[in-house]
Design a protein around this nucleic acid. Structure first.
Lengths: 188, 188
DNA sequence: CGGATCGTTGATCAACTTCAACGGTCGTGG
DNA sequence: CCACGACCGTTGAAGTTGATCAACGATCCG
């Protein structure tokens, strides 16, 4: 369960095995079945979540009742309603399991403690967020002006594995498209 | 020149005056005239940039020759082509001055050194990026599915000062809209 | 004064959504 | 074990939103 986590952390910083033993104690393992919620709109997002197995999606429900997916997270990804987690306000996002999933949860309190106790983790998260900003920037530019077809092609280029694993209607939502539009694009 | 920087940093972490004196030496002041480039597409982004006075925009030029603006940065904001800065690859973005501007530049080398020498700055940037992710997430969700009018209204809500300061055609580009469309929206 | 820049307005057009219907596949309960 | 319903992708037709093209007025600045 923790193997995935430390593998991922050690891609960015190095930890002693004493560190790892300690750090593991800050996390709470949890298992979700397909379709089960990790977070519901309106609740406070209590945990920052690391996915060690499986697949989650975060989404917002719009006025018309459509899910609008903002992120998928599978093995090695972190997910949460960041705004809610940081400020401990009501969440705007929902997060649920697309597949049966194993998670490692860290509470806001433990997160703060982790960062205070292990400067190396401060560094880890700084690097994680830094990288995250790069990819979000690209998505944002693409969303703001690329055609539907272009958006799909860029995604296929950047994350080919995602298309393998995730149902097409969810991909459409992630790209901000109607499922029918994506279907027509793929015909070419 | 540095006052703005330290004010901004001390909103998130506390520094001793000895720290400040030291930290200032990692930065290079620079002044830009209106329309002058801070970064051109194809060059490597050598500096992470803090704006102490004035206004910059970052943008990409698309196939049709239109500027597509991804970010504005004024007093108290950081800006760069992050991807280029971190990986020292050719930049995809352009950054130029919308107004006469005073900058503080930090090179990749000094940035690494700063983070290594001052753990508190590791923390500062972690928090900065963390906050940045929250706002980018919101923009991304809005870009992926909100109507033009909704996008404008959310912006007016979130950053009213931006509308005061920045010409309307640049706002349109930032929102991913044609200038004509934004003009029509505002008529209501 | 003359040119550049910016916002506005009208008319047309293209891209994408919406609505509706259909076929295939999978899982579950009778 | 089969049948039914749920879910998913596909296709067609019609409708909407926003982009594009073109022209014009206002303002600012050299």
């Amino acid at each position: 369960m923790f193997e995935e986590l430390f593998t991922h952390i050690e891609e960015k910083v190095t930890l002693t095995s004493a560190d790892k033993e300690q750090i593991a104690t800050y996390f709470l393992p949890k298992r979700l079945r397909r379709r089960q919620y990790a977070l519901q709109e309106g609740d406070v997002c209590k945990y920052l979540t690391f996915v060690s197995r499986g697949l989650l999606k975060s989404f917002k429900v719009d006025e018309k009742g459509n899910e609008r997916i903002s992120l998928f997270a599978w093995e090695g990804w972190w997910i949460s309603d960041f705004n809610s987690f940081i400020h401990q306000e009501a969440a705007e996002l929902n997060i649920d399991a697309v597949e049966d999933t194993d998670l490692l949860l860290i509470s806001r309190e433990h997160y703060d403690k982790l960062l205070a106790d292990f400067p190396i983790m401060e560094r880890y998260f700084r690097i994680l967020y830094q990288n995250s900003l790069v990819t979000k920037d690209k998505r944002l530019i693409s969303a703001n002006g690329d055609s539907a077809e272009m958006r799909y092609m860029k995604l296929a280029e950047a994350m080919p594995d995602m298309l393998q694993r995730i149902p097409q209607n969810l991909i459409a939502s992630y790209l901000g498209l109607a499922p029918e539009t994506l279907s027509r694009i793929k015909k070419k």
